[in-house]
Design a protein around this nucleic acid. Structure first.
Lengths: 108, 108
DNA sequence: TTCCATACCTAGTTATGCTAGGTATGGAAG
DNA sequence: CTTCCATACCTAGCATAACTAGGTATGGAA
């Protein structure tokens, strides 16, 4: 479970340039050392959500001698959203870290 | 949104010793510098879930001249679960960090 | 006596991620 | 040539998590 951070990760995966769904899944898998091995049923609906929200745009492409793919790109709003989500992740992980780290069995 | 890490945080809050629901909310609020200001409707059901799962145990207490409170304690299974979840959090946050940090605007 | 902070609770809504299916094509293996 | 796998897309429906929005009750301060 990615618990609400899926969108952030997908946006980040597209920051380096446009990509299609299947490739995004692979990028996330390799980039996380297989910690996030996301099923398509998770990623495709997320891409549609993000496009509906205006954070991504898409276009069908057919590479020569290849199969049709839908290429997703970050919109300007998407880039802004990613920046916001990066900050939110920082606050979030910092807070969790403090709460988890601060909990000692018992200080002497 | 705590995105599935609520249980981890609640378990961690009880690591230092038993506490009641309202106090746990305050502990999490202060410990996270108000990043996590959790509504009761979030925390109480979580406590019940964790107790049903055997990770917490509870007992009603009435301090002298005070009001009745339900004191929650970590069970042995709860302590084990907390250790597991700490590791899971480490893997999770590490992976997100890599994916977010690795996404550069463009490498030269 | 009125109000606030404490202290507990739950029904119902919403959104998220996943399961479990389905369609289709290019290329390799047999 | 046919069978199978990896690629590549999709959706309906389920489970669950967190929250909203209510409710009850008490001790102490104003």
């Amino acid at each position: 479970m990615l618990k609400g951070h899926l969108d952030t990760i997908v946006l980040a995966a597209l920051e380096a340039g446009p990509a299609h769904g299947y490739a995004i899944i692979e990028t996330i898998k390799r980039g996380s050392s297989h910690t996030f091995d996301l099923p398509e049923g998770t990623v495709y609906p997320a891409l549609h959500r993000l496009e509906d929200a205006g954070l991504l745009s898409s276009a069908w492409m057919t590479p020569p001698g290849g199969r049709r793919r839908r290429l997703y790109s970050l919109t300007k709003a998407g880039a802004t959203a990613l920046a916001d989500r990066r900050k939110a992740w920082g606050r979030f992980s910092q807070a969790v870290e403090t709460l988890l780290g601060g909990g000692r069995a018992w200080p002497a």
